[in-house]
Write a protein that binds this DNA or RNA. Structure first.
Length: 638
RNA sequence: GCUAAAAUAGCUCAGUGGUAGAGCAACUGAUUCGUAAUCAGUAGGUCGGGGGUUCAAAUCCCCCUUUUAGCCCCA
């Protein structure tokens, strides 16, 4: 009996009934058979030894494919669990999925794993890998599976099994004497895993719930070759070099002081210079786009936060109140109630709408101490906030505008790759389901209008409405939320916001919160990492360092510096009594984009020798010429 | 907040119970120099804070603060 197998290129071949993906791969080439990890048969992922019994389509998947990586890493996680079970038989296993880069497995072990344990486990894994242990699939009824794991005292697996709906296939995978509950598929045998590195351990709650027991998680990664592993480890090192906390210190951009408090950022002159340029640009763009800038205080009375719903829904993220004249005042975690107060300071007409209030508003949120992270996660930060108050008819257009505006501004800072999420109704939420659906639809429409790719983040909306979030990745491939565009069904209602319509009757406006850069702190952090501290020219705190060859040329250097300043270029002179090589090295390390070297030659010809950061000597230029070039560079924001 | 690790000079780090160290930076002097480190000298530390053990603590123990990697959460 033969069956027809269709390949991704639509070609069809005949095979013996019961042929396996591995045999098919073998038939194409030996190399492919060696590299193939898993296969999709009729769009369903299967093991390589899965027997194909009928006409089917097939796609052979290798490690270069994301699905291939996932299967490979997931199988390595099983291998790690096997190694851990062999070394520490009393340990219970929980779950062990593949993640974006690598895998982890959670274990229930009373004493946490040490670094020495990791080495032992890694060695054991390598030993097991070399033995080419087969991953055997077995399908059994649920009752039997429960019995089996109960007997093995794997209560986490029993808990999982109890939640699998009736009728779903339950599959087990066994390598050697280790059996795990798993949907699969897996690699064919452990020998496919050639290079392994266990990276770190950490605590993790069972099912991510802090009420549950803390398990011990081990993270690792694996590759089909040592070369790939080494590249991964090398990239990791390179990423560490871009860490904003490291560069922030090296370039004297910002600091955090124990004395001042955790998660509270001190912007040093260099960082503050960059921030002020960002703010100036931001203001210009917002005025152009029809926003009105407002300012509001840092604290507000308890009643305000009662009305807004923050004390009901957001209290755990707020600082405790300050008592003044027997009144409770809270540090603001958000700016919205203040903007609403401005709106409500007088009666509004439909003719005024949309009203767009923008503010660089500094807010304070109580973050768990363990969550704090450099500039990325702090307790006091400045949001580039705005609230758009509009009529229901204006809503879609306003969402559309703000989305385009947002992407446009991010691009001006050199960002290109974004991850975009549309978040839906969370469990703890206010507002009617219909309103939520309508809001989500409006957001979706705006994204679709501009062919923007996005993912749905179920239940991740704010308590008051759905939102679109734009994420930017950092050096270590972690993504950070920058822009957010959020609907609000709550506040207009809570505060009883109104405008007088054409019918001379009061109506409830819609409100959209949005922050484009998100928080200036986090945005600055991502900016540092994205550019590795080599900021776009227009943002550099010092754009030109004038380097006199010796004391004799300091006067000429002063003239050059003066001319630069007259042209709005931020420059300074290095008066140090050092050789030119030293001064250049220092300017290079400070990542100053231009170095102007001035000595005898330059003074005589009234020119400057230009050296560009990371590029080297560009030759000599007249001041007018080079200033012209720099002005173009500033204009183009490159 | 939880689990684990860490905190020594401005920075990067060495020092595991017996007189606090190095390199760079800083300061002083010499040198006046051509594209990533000139030479010499000087100064700088209650070893994160508090308590304890000990004849003796940077080192061992306890508490606190902060940081790091994750968990949870989030701009």
């Amino acid at each position: 009996m033969s069956i027809k197998i269709k390949f991704p290129d639509n070609s069809v071949s005949d095979f013996q009934k019961g042929v396996t993906p591995l045999e098919i791969a073998e038939g194409i080439s030996h190399g492919l058979a060696k590299d193939v990890i898993t296969a999709k048969v009729n769009e369903e992922l299967v093991d390589l030894n899965h027997k194909i019994e009928e006409d089917s389509s097939i796609e052979l998947i290798k490690f270069d494919n994301d699905i291939g990586k996932e299967v490979y890493w997931h199988s390595t996680a099983h291998l790690m669990a096997q190694a851990v079970k062999e070394l520490y038989p009393d340990v219970k296993v929980a779950i062990g999925p593949a993640i974006e880069s690598g895998f982890y497995y959670d274990f229930d072990k009373n004493i946490p794993f040490t670094d020495d344990d990791l080495v032992k486990i890694e060695d054991k894994m390598k030993e097991l890998a070399k033995q080419d242990i087969e991953y055997k699939r077995q399908e059994i009824p649920r009752k039997e599976a429960i019995k089996l794991f109960f007997k093995m005292k794997d209560n986490y697996k029993v808990e999982l099994l109890n939640e699998i709906p009736d009728g779903e296939t339950i599959s087990l995978y066994t390598q050697g004497n280790f059996t795990d509950l798993c949907r699969g598929p897996h690699i064919i045998h452990s020998g496919k895993v050639k290079a392994i590195k266990l990276l770190k351990t950490s605590g993790a709650y069972w099912r991510g719930d802090e009420k549950n027991k803390m398990l011990q998680r081990i993270y690792g990664i694996s590759f089909p070759s040592n070369k790939e592993l080494n590249k991964f480890l090398h990239d990791l090192e390179e990423a560490k070099k871009r860490d904003h906390r490291k560069i922030g210190k090296e370039l004297d951009l910002y600091s955090v002081s124990d004395e001042v408090g955790a998660g509270l950022i001190l912007w040093h002159p260099n960082g503050a210079m960059i921030r002020s340029i960002i703010e100036r640009y931001w203001l210009d763009r917002h005025f152009e786009a029809g926003y009105q800038v407002v300012y509001s205080p840092h604290i507000g009375k308890g009643e305000l936060w009662e009305t807004s719903g923050h004390l009901e829904f957001y209290k755990e993220s707020m600082y405790n109140p300050i008592i003044v004249d027997e009144q409770e005042y809270y540090l603001k975690p958000m700016n919205c109630p203040f903007h609403i107060a401005i709106y409500q300071s007088r009666k509004r007409s439909y003719r005024e709408l949309p009203i767009k209030y923008a503010e660089m508003g500094t807010v304070y949120r109580y973050e768990h101490s363990g969550a704090l992270h450099g500039l990325m996660r702090v307790r006091g930060f400045t949001q580039d906030d705005a609230h758009i108050i509009c009529t229901p008819e204006q809503l879609i257009e306003e969402i559309d505008k703000v989305l385009v505006f947002s992407m446009d501004i991010l691009k001006a800072f050199g960002f290109k790759d974004f991850l975009i999420y549309l978040s839906t109704m969370p469990e703890k939420a206010v507002g009617k389901k219909e309103d939520w659906d309508r809001g989500i639809e409006a957001l979706r429409k705006a994204l679709d209008n501009h062919n923007i790719e996005y993912e749905i983040d179920e239940g991740a909306g704010a308590f008051y409405g759905p939102k679109i979030d734009i994420y930017i990745k950092d050096a270590l491939n972690r993504s950070w939320q920058c822009s957010t565009i959020q609907f609000d069904f709550n506040l207009p209602e809570q505060f009883g916001m109104e405008y007088i319509g054409t019918d001379n009757k009061p109506h409830r406006p819609f409100m959209v919160h949005r922050a484009l850069l998100g928080s200036l702190e986090r945005f600055f952090g991502t900016l540092i990492e994205y550019h590795a501290g080599n900021f776009p020219f227009w943002l550099c705190p010092i754009q030109v360092e004038v380097l006199p060859i010796s004391e004799h040329f300091e006067e000429y250097a002063g003239k050059v510096n003066k001319k630069l300043k007259e042209n709005g270029i931020r420059s300074e002179i290095d008066y140090k009594n050092e050789k030119i090589g030293y001064k250049i090295r220092e300017a290079e390390m400070r990542k100053i984009p231009y170095m102007f070297i001035v000595g005898q030659k330059e003074m005589e010809s009234q020119k400057v020798s230009v050296r560009r950061h990371l590029k080297g000597d560009l030759g000599s230029f007249s001041l007018d010429e080079i200033i012209g070039k720099m002005k173009i560079e500033i204009e183009s924001k490159s």
